[in-house]
Computed example of a mutant assay.
Amino acid sequence: MSYMAPIKDMLFVMKELAGLEDIAMLPGFEDANLDTAQAVLEESAKLCGEVLAPLNVEGDRNPSSWKDGVVTATPGFREAFRQFAEGGWQGV
């Protein structure tokens, strides 16, 4: 299974509908520009496409479970979450 994030569509919405350029003019949001948004979306797309999406099949075959107070995660999920956390994505 492969996933290709619709980055062009996301950037269109951020620019044309959400007014990203207007937001970038607010004090403290100077870095909230289209170049920054594109860089963040591209890196996020890599994580989603290369790390998270491939886990969908494994999750279907070996779903996480909870038994006697113990959670057993799908193989690969721990490593994927580690990459998610180390990349700082929980703060985005």
Rank of each mutant, 00 (worst) to 15 (best):
A5R: 10
A5S: 14
K8C: 00
D9K: 12
M10N: 08
M10Q: 14
F12I: 07
V13F: 07
V13N: 09
M14K: 08
M14Q: 12
M14S: 08
E16W: 01
E16K: 06
E16S: 10
L17P: 00
A18P: 00
G19C: 03
L20C: 08
E21L: 06
D22T: 07
D22P: 00
I23E: 02
I23K: 02
M25S: 12
P27Y: 08
P27H: 07
P27I: 08
G28E: 11
F29I: 00
F29T: 04
F29C: 13
E30C: 01
D31R: 11
N33D: 15
N33Q: 06
N33C: 06
L34A: 13
L34G: 00
L34W: 04
Q38K: 15
A39Y: 05
L41P: 04
L41F: 15
L41T: 05
E42R: 12
E43K: 14
E43L: 10
E43A: 10
S44F: 11
S44I: 03
K46V: 15
C48R: 01
C48A: 14
G49I: 04
G49V: 06
E50W: 01
V51G: 00
A53M: 06
P54M: 04
P54L: 03
N56E: 13
N56Q: 13
N56A: 12
V57L: 14
V57W: 08
E58V: 11
E58H: 02
E58L: 08
G59L: 01
G59T: 02
G59M: 04
G59R: 02
R61D: 05
R61T: 03
P63G: 06
S64H: 07
S65D: 11
S65Q: 09
S65T: 15
W66S: 09
W66C: 09
W66V: 15
K67F: 11
K67L: 13
G69Y: 09
V70F: 04
V70E: 13
V70Q: 12
V71K: 05
T74Q: 04
P75A: 09
P75L: 05
P75G: 08
P75W: 07
G76K: 00
G76N: 02
F77D: 01
R78Q: 13
E79W: 01
E79S: 10
A80M: 13
R82W: 05
R82N: 12
Q83K: 13
Q83S: 08
F84A: 08
A85E: 14
W89M: 05
Q90P: 00
V92P: 00
